[in-house]
Design a protein around this nucleic acid. Structure first.
Lengths: 148, 148
DNA sequence: GCTGGCGTTGACGCCCGCGTCAAGGTCTAC
DNA sequence: GTAGACCTTGACGCGGGCGTCAACGCCAGC
């Protein structure tokens, strides 16, 4: 199988495959004409990589899985190093989720406060609706709360 | 106030300030010698930027807040455009958190499965210690990872 | 023999928010 | 006058995962 077909079968691009080879993931044999030559096992490797990427793993994090498959194990996660990556990623995910939830809380607090203040202003304006101009200009200048 | 002092007071660096100016956030007056000159109001702008950045806002997302302050409003979020950014960010956060939780679930499933298989192998190895090779290779090919 | 579709390597581009260096100008203190 | 602490602009680097182009080779079909 040549690079184009492998890319198609794994749902990626030739550029990505060459990049993986450059990283030392997914090395390729060469045909007589210099073309890269792949086999069915490379499809598995590649699918393993893509699956982990979908999970947000970086390419380096996929390396233990790939090496595990290359070593002939039934799954990419049949090796201790892969399990270790799982554990690391799970704790990273937990940390990340917690951080995002904390941020979400704080942002929504800010949003609620800002809306309350906006509504308070609108209510105040509605309470004393049509005011003559000199009265308006004599009132505390709403638009210039900031002294410069 | 010159750039170094402003940076120190806002807890950032001169490089960041120059970058903000380049983006059109935080423009600066110039002193006679060409040095950038800042006032107290710039401290407020900068603190607004830094706060939002801590929330994970991109610099462009902070622009409405900064412009709102520059327009003389009491808070960076006193303007509709800022509220709109809040809303957009909240929905982005929700989406992101949901995605991460989904991923977390799937990764932990994979992890659990991989550990079960490891333990099963260990138990099997302990139960029938020396097994012939053809029997080991006849193991059932349990769930494939994923395709896509 | 020519076209077109594959393949090859190499190199630069992108995004974002700066860090870091280079080569110089300005101001203060001794 | 000179050290050193600040300032200026400009330019390149980085990380991750490729996209995209250039310039060329290989091979099948007409």
């Amino acid at each position: 199988m040549r690079i184009g077909e492998l890319a198609k079968r794994a749902g990626t691009t030739t550029r990505a495959l060459r990049y993986y080879e450059q990283l030392g993931l997914l090395p390729a044999r060469r045909a007589g004409n210099g073309y890269r030559a792949y086999g069915e096992e490379d499809v598995r490797l590649l699918r393993q990589i893509r699956t982990l990427q979908d999970f947000g793993f970086g390419l380096e994090d996929t390396r233990p899985f790939v090496e595990c498959l290359q070593a002939g194990h039934p799954h990419g996660d049949s090796c201790p190093a892969s399990l270790e990556v799982y554990r690391k990623k799970l704790s990273e995910l937990d940390e990340c989720i917690a951080r995002l939830q904390e941020v979400r809380t704080r942002v929504s607090e800010q949003y609620a406060r800002a809306e309350r203040e906006r509504d308070a202003l609108a209510a105040g304006a509605a309470a004393e609706p049509p005011q003559c101009e000199w009265a308006a200009s004599a009132a505390p200048d709403r638009n210039e709360w900031e002294k410069r």
